[in-house]
Amino acid sequence: MDQVDRILAQWHQERPDLDVAPMGMFGRFGRLRSILSAELDKVFAAHGLNGASFDVLATLRRSGPPYALSPSSLIEWTMVTSGTMTNRLDKLEQAGLISREKNPEDGRGFVIALTEKGHALIDAAVTDHVANQHRLTKALSADEQAQLDALLRKWLAGMEADGS
């Protein structure tokens, strides 16, 4: 039994009329989220990053050559507001990890591009990040990981379809 099981047992005792099964899932998700976030943050911090800066650099890196995107594309991929993105970009530019360059397709706008320093940093960080993710999921077999991923995908698709 884990702590969530003990909490559910208390609810079963006090309110046997309620089906508290979802409470168990949400309790475990909350606990996992807390643990996993802390473990992911350790890897980001080891590279002088946080989750937000990692997200921007990783988005640029996975976009492929020339590793540059418009601010609106970055906002779309990272799902943050323009004000939040501007703050992130200012900090990354000050650190020399990105540059703002004229958009070659539209001289009025600009693109955000990885610098050589940013490219090297995100390559090292993402290598460690993926290794960390493997470490964090090793309690599940490959089949269990695939099953969990499929169930989470189904659940998320249902929630997104409902507009949640």
Score class of each variant (00 low, 15 high):
His12Val: 09
Arg15Thr: 14
Leu18Met: 14
Asp19Phe: 06
Pro22Gln: 13
Met23Thr: 13
Gly24Tyr: 09
Gly27Cys: 02
Gly30Gln: 12
Leu32His: 11
Leu32Cys: 10
Arg33Val: 03
Ser34Asn: 06
Ser34Cys: 07
Ser34Ala: 15
Leu36Glu: 11
Asp41Asn: 12
His47Ala: 06
Gly48Gln: 06
Leu49Ser: 03
Ala52Gln: 15
Leu57Pro: 01
Arg62Thr: 14
Ser63Pro: 12
Pro66Asn: 12
Tyr67Lys: 04
Ala68Met: 00
Ser73Gln: 14
Leu74Ser: 01
Ile75Ser: 04
Met79Gln: 06
Met79Asn: 14
Val80Cys: 11
Gly83Ile: 07
Gly83Tyr: 01
Gly83Thr: 08
Gly83Lys: 10
Met85Pro: 02
Met85His: 06
Thr86Ala: 11
Arg88Ala: 02
Asp90Met: 07
Leu92Arg: 04
Ala95Cys: 12
Ala95Ser: 11
Leu97Trp: 02
Ile98Pro: 03
Ser99Phe: 09
Ser99Arg: 05
Arg100Lys: 13
Glu101Gln: 12
Pro104Asn: 00
Pro104Met: 04
Pro104Asp: 06
Gly109Pro: 05
Glu116Thr: 15
Lys117Arg: 15
Thr127Phe: 02
Thr127Gly: 01
Thr127Glu: 10
His129Ile: 08
His129Arg: 05
Val130Gly: 01
Asn132Ala: 04
Arg135Pro: 05
Leu136His: 11
Ser141Arg: 04
Ser141Asp: 05
Asp143Trp: 08
Glu144Gly: 03
Leu148Asn: 08
Arg153Thr: 11
Arg153Cys: 00
